[in-house]
Design a protein around this nucleic acid. Structure first.
Lengths: 234, 234
DNA sequence: TCAAAAGTGTTACAAATACACCCATGT
DNA sequence: ACATGGGTGTATTTGTAACACTTTTGA
């Protein structure tokens, strides 16, 4: 009888566990999504999120980091679980659940190259094509998550380069919330958080006058991360 | 070569997928957690969350609902995914990831009996004993989730019976936030949401004078669910 | 009559919103 | 000199926070 109970595990079903990364970047004033052409059957050649099966000896989070590094060369990226996609019929092959994880990345030229080498591509969010399986749903869900989360955690900042201007930060939030923000109120609110250090440099890429560059005060930024803040925007 | 690619799935690892339910109730002014004694080895007899393996032909969400119904007799319960517990070493037996799902339940006497029959027990949150595996972590995580979510979704209301008093609702929020709330401000805020319908009945269980019972205006309540609201409390 | 919980309003303060003009610079 | 985006201040409104007494009724 004890043996029967001990055999309980063995009687259970095993299945594949995958993870798919919803990778966001911010460039040219737009939110972008990193997708690539699937290299295995079925659905070979279709656009897809970047993902991988989870190995027996590997944490789910590790699997996502592994595949993200493979394709973007990046480590220590902001990545967080979105949710499980666990419908019985979601994969036309054998039963496979997938854990969606979204990542926020600072796009730069070096990574752009690496990404192309792997057959990946940054797409404007509005122009994302049909993706395999339920991947379009994952993207939609991840976007909702970011929109909500940006209201109380400074995750938007994960998408900016080390030095950035306040108009850039505003553009980013405009892209996330998908609406125009009053620049006076935005500036007031952002500066009141006490996480920005003004530099002596200007970025003249977008205007003749140039905009002051800022960087983060990492100590205070860390506090924001931990305790959250209120960043509702009219 | 094509065959090799098609064999890609077959080369992958399969594992067990479980789901564990973090079931909250509200009774006698306290948040409670439903746990039960594990009926299988290993760890037979230890306190544990209520869970189950996910079957091959079953959605992850369905699995959670199945086991919840088995033990509480309840259907159509508020249940939502918490997150995946996917560490490689989390289960001492064979590799098994678990998807935590938290549920909010209206405790009533009928269900109390059913629960006891299944060897389950409602514990005050402060008195929850050591649970197997990472289940205590799941409880902690679920509680944080509820605390955050209660600020913008009316989930607290899921824990109340159909008819309830405003002092009860306040007690509930005091239990969730773990702090005292000013009753005048609370009442003002709750009533301003326009989701409560005052009944002519009074509940005299807690006081001689009795407190008016209310129920939800389901149409407006639905809107709150969809769009969220701001329920920060001092 | 008293104990115990229910119910009620106002004032002070803080934060969010709405709004329009001058500045700096490269061409 | 002008076009373009960068940068600044104030008044109004809205919402949050703090605060104490009266009412009801069963025992």
């Amino acid at each position: 009888m004890a043996a029967e109970i001990e055999d309980y595990y063995v009687q259970q079903d095993k299945m594949y566990v995958a993870t798919d990364c919803i990778i966001f970047g911010f460039d040219e004033g737009n939110l972008k999504l990193l997708i690539f052409r699937r290299r295995v059957k079925p659905l070979l050649g279709s656009w897809s999120l970047i993902g991988s099966f989870v190995k027996l000896n590997e944490d789910v989070g590790e699997a996502a980091k592994r595949v993200l590094k493979e394709i973007t060369g990046l480590e220590n990226v902001f990545m967080e679980e979105l949710r499980t996609y666990g419908a019985a019929e979601r994969d036309p092959g054998f039963r496979c659940i997938s854990i969606g994880q979204y990542a926020l990345i600072r796009i730069n030229d070096y990574d752009k190259e690496l990404v192309e080498i792997h057959g990946a591509h940054w797409y404007d969010l509005e122009e994302v094509p049909d993706l395999v399986l339920d991947h379009n749903t994952m993207v939609k869900d991840a976007l909702s998550r970011i929109r909500r989360k940006a209201r109380y955690k400074p995750i938007g900042f994960e998408l900016l380069p080390e030095k950035f201007t306040i108009p850039q930060l505003q553009q980013l939030y405009e892209a996330i919330y998908n609406k125009k923000i009053d620049s006076r109120n935005f500036r007031k609110k952002v500066l009141s958080l006490n996480v920005l250090t003004k530099l002596d440099e200007k970025d003249k890429y977008n205007s003749r006058r140039g905009a002051y560059l800022y960087k983060f005060d990492h100590k205070n930024y860390q506090k924001l991360q931990e305790f959250g803040f209120n960043f509702e925007i009219s």
